[in-house]
Amino acid sequence: MIALARMRLHGFVRTGRAVAPLIAALAVLSILYGGGQAEAREAYGVSALVVFPLLAWQTKILLDVEPDVQRRLARVALGSARHEIVAGLLAAAAAGLGTIAVALAVPWISGGVKTGPDSLPRILLIGLGVHLLALGPAVALGALSSRAVTRTAGTGAAVLVTGSVLAIVLGLQGSPAPWLVPPLMAATRFTTSGGSTLTALTLTAHAALWTAATAWAYAHLRRTRT
């Protein structure tokens, strides 16, 4: 399973497909941090929100690199449909960690943030945490929009865009159904307004549940749509 994840990650990088989402991430982060210094803790909250659709798009690109027949060969070689599916998600998560590292480093390199009252290690920990909250749901959404499930480019793009927009709209304060989407907006509010450990744990549980439910839907659709 790890070997297949590595093979897919290599394919993603060596075909040059990793370049477009990386450039898009750098562009978005440049805009985000180009308007003067912000407190790093708050900036990371917004960064995680804007990086979410990029991580989902990156996941779709990574999973779509592999030809359909090769995906089937991988399934036969592994002898397990479940392991083949998990290998793809692992590869996407690993690629996402790379993008998150860029998102965490760029504001310090560009001078777009200041530490504020928190220490640097604490800020980095909060930044990593809030980006990781976005990573799981983004990988699950990107997988759900991949060709193996949606079959056509149009349907894949529609799933990706709709999922990303709903994640923001239904996450706004006063939303009637914030539990339907990953807690991206809530996480952003947490970093700007602060909150208790219980709030952080609730957000983590919400993101984990949403990721698990969406990943289950992806796995179910993959097993019925080969």
Binding site: H10, G11, R14, T15, V65, E66, P67, D68, V69, Q70, R72, L73, V76, G79
Partner: peptide, 16 residues
Amino acid sequence: AVVGWVPERSPADQTG
């Protein structure tokens, strides 16, 4: 446990 499958068309359109 070990299955070898040779598809009708091998997937040559990939890197490496």
